[in-house]
Amino acid sequence: MAEPSILSVKGVETFYGAIQALHGVDLDVAKGEIVALIGANGAGKSTLLMTICGNPRARAGAIRLDGEDITALPTHEIVRRGVAQVPEGRRIFPRMSVLENLQMGATLAEPAHFTHDLERVFAMFPRLAERRDQRGGTLSGGEQQMLAIGRALMSRPRLLLLDEPSLGLAPLIVRQIFEVIGRIAREEGVTIFLVEQNAYHALRLADRGYVLANGRVRLSGGGRELLANAEVRAAYLEGGHG
């Protein structure tokens, strides 16, 4: 890691009531990287992503963004510091138009950038341009995912957090979405931290990856390296995604 880390998670423990979901998780994301976090259902992947966003709060450990401790900040303050989130299940605004959804994404951005950023998102997702006056709830699953990513990009984030972008999408659409995520990192220089069940696609795209199991980091390494790892293959790839 030549670049300094933009996100660093040290010894984070998160609880839901009395139940501990994360047991001292450490990980780092360097500037400009794509980092994937994979793991089975219930491993704590989404919990980690949500803890980074401050909801729920970490009970122990520290989360730093560019060296600043953000562990105790409320979500909207963390977002204000250049972290954008594509939440699990996309969570677009169903009764608002595509354009209004994107406008909501630009809440924290300079108003002067709006037109330019909108064109950028429309260039990346021409489907959204076609459907800009349609209500968000009437879009297909893939289009909604595009809208959720586009909405997150409207705030010009430094760090983009994606929670299961492939969830419930057809294989062809999944490939498109991952291709776009790669372009966002390469062309826009946005650092990406991605939580995925689809280990094959995620690790193929990622520079580095972490494997989470039962709330602990089990393995870490380069994306291709993990993809070739026998344990990873056995647990997350065999008989799974192709």
Binding site: C53, T75, V79, P87, R91, M104, G105, T107, L108, S155
Partner: peptide, 20 residues
Amino acid sequence: RAWEALREDETACRALGINP
């Protein structure tokens, strides 16, 4: 706009930096 977005989805609002 934040009012309307809040009606639609509070979690998403937080994720976009809106103070609910």
